[in-house]
Write a protein that binds this DNA or RNA. Sequence first.
DNA 1: CCTGTCACG
DNA 2: GACGTACGTGACAGGG
Length: 935
Amino acid sequence: MTQFGKGCHLHLIDGSAFIFRAYHALPPLTRKSDGLPIGAVSGFCNMLQKYVEDNAGPDAPTHVAVIFDKGSHTFRNDLYDQYKANREEMPEDLRPQIPLTREATIAFNIACKELEGYEADDIIATLSRQAREAGGRVTIISSDKDLMQLVGDGVEMLDAMKNRRIDRDGVMEKFGVWPDRVVDVQALAGDSVDNVPGAPGIGIKTAALLINEWGSLEELLDNAEQIKQPKRRQTLIDKREQIELSKRLVQLDEETPLDFTLDDLEVREPDPETLLEFLTKMEFRSLTKRISDSLGVEAPVLPDTTPEGANPPEDDAPEMPAIDPESYVWVKTAEDLAPWIAAAHERGWVAVDTETTGLDEMACDLVGISLCIEPGEACYIPLAHRGDSDGGLFGDGDLAEGQMPMQAALDALKPLFEDPAVMKIGQNMKYDAKVFSRYGIDISPIDDTMLMSYAMNAGLHTHGMDALSERYLSHVPIPIKTLLGSGKKMKTFDQVPIGDAVKYAAEDADITLRLWKIFKPQLHRAHVTRVYEGLERPLVPVLAEMERNGVQVDRNVLSRMSGAFAQKMAQLEEEIHELAGESFNVGSPKQLGEILFDKMGLEGGKKGKTGAYGTGADVLEDLATEHELPARVLDWRQISKLKSTYTDALQGHINAETGRVHTSYVIAGANTGRLASTDPNLQNIPVRSEEGRRIREAFVAPEGKTLVSLDYSQIELRILAHMADIDALKQAFRDGQDIHAMTASEMFNVPMDEMTPEIRRQAKAINFGVIYGISGFGLARNLRIPRKDAQDFIDRYFERFPGIKAYMDDTTEFAKEHKRVETLFGRVIHTPEIAAKGPRAGFAKRAAINAPIQGTAADIIRRAMIRMPEAIEGLPAKMLLQVHDELLFEVETGAEDALIEAARAVMEGAAEPVVKLDVPLVADAGQGSNWAEAH
DNA sequence: CCTGTCACG
DNA sequence: GACGTACGTGACAGGG
């Protein structure tokens, strides 16, 4: 054992901060076996584990302790009976968890210290002093500002949540004084949380100003008569006693009588057995697993209980055998395959999964197919695995042994996959359906476990197979990385030895079937059968077809634009470097920030949580009024974005075979029911700026065809008018009025014929704000007006449209009560965060207000898309893209009007018959030889 | 791999 | 116990 001294590094963890953060960060989890609340303990352990992982490096501490508060009465209460008097009672479900956090700390083999009658802060102060005096370094893991007085002279703080170190400069940033004067500032400013009175009317800013002027609190108070501002002077004179008391309250005690020494805090390895025993006792399934892995020991078997998180398995969840990759069957011949097909027919269902050479369904090759008919009964049919690459000059590239001919397999499977009496079950079936469709198989009918999960659990968790398997089967699937590797030397699936492929691929089908068995009976209990069967599942073939259609993109147009952009960028770069007086990377926000704020000394530099200056467009726009450089950077940024994301990258997405761009839509990505578009994202092609809009000219109709676009007019505002039942808005929509102008007229008492663009613009911003869960802050930022003005606008808006306010309150109330909100079509969006405290509550509230509106709009266009194929069946037209409220079609020239008529009817009637909206839905149409013209 | 920035509805 | 704040997305570049 080494004695604490020079070269030693002590970490002091603020245990109470960990507990509170854990408590507020997690839903109220309970231990399955007895209902004991354990959410905070779970979070606490997760944070400890993360702490241990993060601090294993070269700068690892030599000594560490978690420090807790003990007892509610401290010397500060003797000084001031109101100290911390306004503190809320500890929540009922947190109290029993407090001793468990001590147990957890000990289980991690970390020193756990507390002292009756003292706050953790005092113990931390004392230990910091001792360590400092012994010549060691200290890191205090906490973000509590009360501890900032300790910083300096080898003592730093670490805000674990933001992973930000706070040194003397950080303290200066926060308090405006060096650490040794922090208590003086706090004494003046007081603290509403701890109920430290301070000097009324003086906050941190003013306090720092005064302390810096006078050097210390004592000097200030002794010379209070000389203060110029009369009110401030009087306060300082009258409240002297209160201020001095405040100082004693915030001053930490560095002489706490401790019954241990620094040497007792030496870092110790955790004992796997003790730690895992504790975690098992708490029934932390995934944490037990994760820590077992990191300790390199086998995870103890937990009793089969609910995985941490949502949706406990139903009481009638089927019994299933353990997942055993060794049990899966390698299908080598048609004779091997036949019984699987027969079994699928017999059951009426089969889980299916395809393995391919890549993730691009349009450009990959089929490598194998796996089937599963009952949990644990799964097979893999390899079809295109390559031979052993060590097999000699001619071995590489040949098909490996033990595979049936692909065509024979497809011929045998096609009748099954197209049999209307057999349900084909998949996880993300759109992928498999697209692959099969390229091989001439139109797989149907289908169920999709990803979409089932999405329908039931949107907002609670993601819906990928790995996540679902872990959550609902407590099983971690074989990672694909173990087969393919990663990085440059990554293999494709056809290079995987078949023996390994069987285990991986069949396991996927097995997992999918198990999930299906669990989810299927849950759907109707969650009241989402209609959503799943009416809005999710039927979209799969529609999207698959749209994605296969793709959109024609003219490479030459893009390439020309890229060239022009490159020139323009080089020119701008030169100007920028000249303005800066030096050469730097304009694309680096870090370097740009340093140039603007350090070198050029511009005002208004704000450092974010990583310590870098913010250089977002809003910041640069403010600076641009004063200086040339930021204006040029904004120009450069715009061009750079257009070039890299659009004119360059888009070319790489043109499919070699079709000459078209095939995006992929993520059905279960956005919690609200919206689609997301990836590889490439065709839902964010520029349109707002003139320069950007020209990129749409590269999206073209082939010879003899025309692009037609239909988009819903103001769909979200119409939905809001209906849902909140606002007569004035509903009537305005019925009359076909300019809704923003009408809002402006109502709010500002301006007659419609005297409306100015500026007033209309503000009303428009408010209308959008309402949809987003308006806040004074947000509106102020958007409109670039003082917050007070923004709040006035909002107040006036709510006064004029009280129904909107009522709707927002009702929605929030519903979300609080049910932990979810719903769209008009019954789509459920869970809002677990709504119960959170702190800033997350605000986010959750606004998301809850927005979700039914955005979600209902998403439902409506989904309904339109699902009906569209039939509606345009007789027309020479194809649906290509969806952009949230817009559908893009390609149609033979001459049939535009017929298409518009048919598509418009579908879109405008899409809510019916399930929902009869009080407002009309209107779809505007456009057409042209490219997307810029059509939109 | 994360963060900042910026494109869309 | 402090803390930032309009909703929902995805892609790219820089930087460790």
